[in-house]
């Protein structure tokens, strides 16, 4: 059976498991969506006080916000196995995966597809569509395609961050909430257009941890605005690929972690 079909089976079993607890699923999904919405409320409060943010209006920022949250929600759902990987190491699940003749990455991904993240996803989509509607934006085939591609690219990028976080747990089992801070901090930073930050930070989010790429460049194009930063127009189409690239690089780093684990067993 091919890897993709096996992954599909993993996901279907994971969903079946979650449906065993329907009541808590509904509640968790709601909590997940609502808690994310509160962050947007805080942002809206700031816009009420200040009017605009370096030339960006609230509905525009809503697009950035919505896109990063939908992407992050997808990564949280699909990359859950990596997100809580330290638990899989601690309780021996990872050893079990090593004892099976399949790629460990596939198996870790298959551990859990956390459907309750649908809450954040719906919230992000809602904010995104609200922003577009407030701007009176016309969705063309191109902009829809670009938006979807960018969300997928973003999901890959965040999954890559989860993979790096998981790699860390081969060295230090505790304190992974810290790595979480990095991811959540990245989400927070990408809720705003990249252009509001200082140069060194912008470049950090473009070239080191390319969180800025996943929504900034595509949205500049979708909004039809000139880029105040002066990056070339085709950057919109490159950025989704950046997500994939980051994910693949993370997997290589993960491989180093696995080798370390196999030589130390810690």
């Amino acid at each position: 059976m091919s890897g993709i079909r096996l992954y599909g089976r993993y996901v279907s079993l994971s969903l079946q498991s979650q449906m065993q607890y329907r009541a808590s699923f509904v509640m968790f999904a709601l909590a997940n969506g609502l808690s994310a919405l509160l962050e947007f409320f805080a942002t809206a409060a700031l816009f009420a006080r200040f009017g605009s943010l370096r030339g960006w209006a609230l509905p525009e920022v809503a697009l950035f916000y919505g896109m990063v949250h939908t992407a992050f929600a997808l990564a949280e759902a699909a990359g859950r196995g990596f997100d809580v990987f330290h638990l899989h190491v601690r309780n021996g699940t990872f050893d079990r995966m090593m004892l099976r003749p399949r790629s460990t990455v596939l198996q870790v991904l298959g551990q859990d597809f956390q459907l309750l993240r649908v809450g954040r996803f719906a919230q992000g989509l809602f904010v995104l569509l609200w922003g577009a509607a407030s701007l009176g934006m016309r969705w063309t085939a191109e902009s829809v395609f670009l938006a979807v591609l960018s969300v997928v690219g973003g999901a890959l990028l965040f999954s890559g961050l989860f993979v790096l976080q998981a790699t860390l747990s081969f060295w230090s089992v505790e304190g992974l909430e810290i790595a979480n801070t990095l991811t959540y901090g990245g989400v927070e930073a990408a809720q705003f257009p990249l252009s509001i930050y200082r140069k060194w930070l912008r470049e950090f989010f473009v070239f080191v941890v390319p969180i800025g790429c996943i929504n900034y460049f595509p949205l500049i194009r979708i909004l039809g605005r000139g880029d105040p930063l002066g990056y070339p127009g085709w950057a919109a189409w490159v950025s989704p690929a950046v997500g994939l690239g980051f994910f693949l690089v993370s997997l290589r780093v993960w491989g180093v972690g696995v080798r370390h684990y196999r030589s130390t067993g810690s």
Partner: peptide, 17 residues
Amino acid sequence: MWDLPAADSFDLLRDIY
């Protein structure tokens, strides 16, 4: 798999191996 019947795990193992 903790929350599912063993039969499901058996099917999964068939695909894994």
